[in-house]
Computed example of a mutant assay.
Amino acid sequence: MTDFARGERRQLADLLHHVGPELATVCAGWTTRDLAAHLVVRERRPDAMIGSVIPPLAGHGEHVRLAKLSQPYPELIRQLRTPPWWSPISNPLTDALTNTVEFFIHHEDVRRATPGYAPRDLHPDEQQAIWRTTRLTARLVLRKIGFPVLVEAAGFGTLRLGDGEPRATLTGDPGELALFVSGRQRVAEVDVTGDPAAVAKLTTAQIGM
């Protein structure tokens, strides 16, 4: 099976090296240096990432990330390219599951921060891998919307969330849907149709993990 997580990691590291440390990204308030530091901390400091699931500990994670910013930018990229074998999220058993979509999204965070970008033509197998994870993410984040939603990934499957007739439908490629449900609605090329109020809420809501 093609290792899409490694491919996205390599392409993101190459792009970060090319654009330098000060480029703004789709992640509000984060430059490419901030993004690189986040990714390095994510897989090398499990203690810092606990705050993403235990909010009272979020301050510790941000403290660790800010400390990591003091490292030279080339060193951050080197660490990003060479994850430790012991990382709970980047070892050979978990890498594909935990990193394929993570690195795809952050790759696009850099690409789509620059005007004139174009969506990549992803291999169908990578789209399928992204869709498997996006289905799970959509179940978690869209249930908070408060009304039934239909998610359609043309050629890959559909997902119906909530009881009753959907008030809104999201249609797009798996990669675009992954960006949408991660809270990047403004750069995701997804068609949102249905009840106008539901469409407005979906496109502006603070969603994502």
Rank of each mutant, 00 (worst) to 15 (best):
L35E: 02
G7Y: 06
Y117E: 06
F180Q: 03
T114N: 08
D121G: 10
L12V: 05
D109V: 10
P55E: 00
R120N: 13
R78V: 04
K68R: 14
L122Y: 11
V64E: 09
F180E: 04
V26G: 00
D163H: 11
R120V: 12
D163R: 14
V101S: 05
A13F: 04
F104I: 06
P174F: 05
L15Y: 07
L12Y: 07
G208V: 13
L159W: 07
E43Y: 02
Q11F: 03
L202S: 07
L76P: 03
A48E: 03
E165M: 11
R65Y: 05
P196V: 07
L93Y: 08
G172P: 06
V190Y: 01
A188G: 07
S87V: 12
Q206S: 06
F156K: 06
L66V: 13
T94P: 04
H60G: 05
R160Q: 15
R44G: 01
P21I: 06
R139L: 15
R33Y: 02
E75C: 00
R44E: 06
R10C: 04
G29M: 00
G172I: 02
H38R: 03
D14A: 15
M209V: 14
G116W: 04
G61K: 07
I130M: 12
H107M: 03
L140S: 09
D34G: 03
L140E: 01
T204L: 09
V190P: 02
A36P: 02
E62V: 02
L140G: 09
E8N: 14
A113T: 11
D14P: 03
A154E: 15
A28T: 14
L93S: 12
I105D: 01
A48F: 05
D34R: 04
S70R: 15
P92F: 04
H18W: 03
S70F: 09
P72V: 12
G172W: 00
E75T: 13
M1H: 12
P124A: 14
V151Q: 06
W131K: 11
R184N: 10
R135C: 14
E176P: 03
Q71T: 05
P56D: 13
Q185N: 13
D121T: 15
L136Y: 09
H18A: 15
L57G: 01
V199T: 11
T31D: 04
N91A: 10
I130V: 10
G157Q: 07
R45C: 12
M49T: 14
K144P: 00
P92N: 11
P84N: 13
P166Q: 13
P196F: 06
T2L: 14
G162S: 04
G194T: 07
N99G: 05
S90D: 05
R184V: 11
F104M: 09
G61F: 05
H63T: 07
G7R: 14
A37N: 04
G164W: 02
R135E: 14
G175S: 12
P83Q: 11
L16K: 01
L150N: 11
I145C: 06
T114L: 13
L202E: 03
M49Y: 01
